[in-house]
Design a protein around this nucleic acid. Structure first.
Lengths: 120, 120
DNA sequence: GGTTCATACCTAGCAGCACAAGGTAGAGGA
DNA sequence: TCCTCTACCTTGTGCTGCTAGGTATGAACC
């Protein structure tokens, strides 16, 4: 499943903050966690995650600290802050508004034809 | 309610296509319809809608034709195409994937204890 | 007649962000 | 030795919403 970039952009911040709200994690593990949670249907690139984490840190939504794995590899651990939790709640509310609106058009509209039907 | 621009970007295409799937409409009316459907919580600017409509037309997802209102004002009517319906179905599927994933993190995240739980 | 508001369309310039592609580096296995 | 996985980072490109403008008509009010 290919997710359009604008939808990735819209969900990236709430997803990262939501994952971190469940417990501290490091970058690479967040990448794997997104794959898990979506059943493999979402596959983020690290090229979008790391800049996002830096941005969230600059905004004060997360804090970071360097650590080391048992294997001796360096890891940068991220934790959500109080500001981050507030931002998460705000994003959640926004998402609900948009999701409610979209549900209305999808319910009222005749069922969209599937790709298979169009190409049949 | 202020909706972040990335969430606007993610929902704009499916919303317009969904609205047009329910019946032909002209640009300005789409703007008003979004406000209605969202209970006034979403307020699009025309500066984002018109370029979006032109883009959707260029992609073949909608078609347009000039008309005139009873009052004599010129209006550009838009209609969804078969390709547009396919794109809508695709966006709908993508949205579901992301929404399912987000629901998981929001459910798993710790939340304040309810009064009932505190007294249990 | 003049002013203001709502309707109805359009565009240019700016800023933000995902993505592709590339780099650095250590650990473990074939 | 070489490859893969882990684990982090940055640069350049392209797309897109937003701000801020512009154009034009009709209706309501003074």
């Amino acid at each position: 499943m290919r997710i359009d970039k604008d939808l990735v952009a819209a969900s990236a911040t709430p997803l990262v903050l939501g994952i971190l709200a469940d417990g501290d994690l490091y970058g690479y593990a967040i990448l794997k966690r997104v794959g898990e949670l979506s059943g493999g249907r979402m596959q983020w690139t690290d090229g979008m995650l790391y800049p996002l984490l830096h941005r969230l840190e600059r905004l004060g939504h997360v804090s970071s600290s360097w650590g080391t794995s048992e294997a001796g590899r360096r890891r940068k651990h991220y934790a959500i802050t109080a500001t981050g939790r507030a931002a998460l709640a705000d994003r959640h509310a926004q998402w609900s508004v948009v999701a409610d609106t979209l549900r209305q058009v999808w319910e009222s509209a005749p069922r969209p034809a599937t790709v298979a039907e169009v190409w049949a």
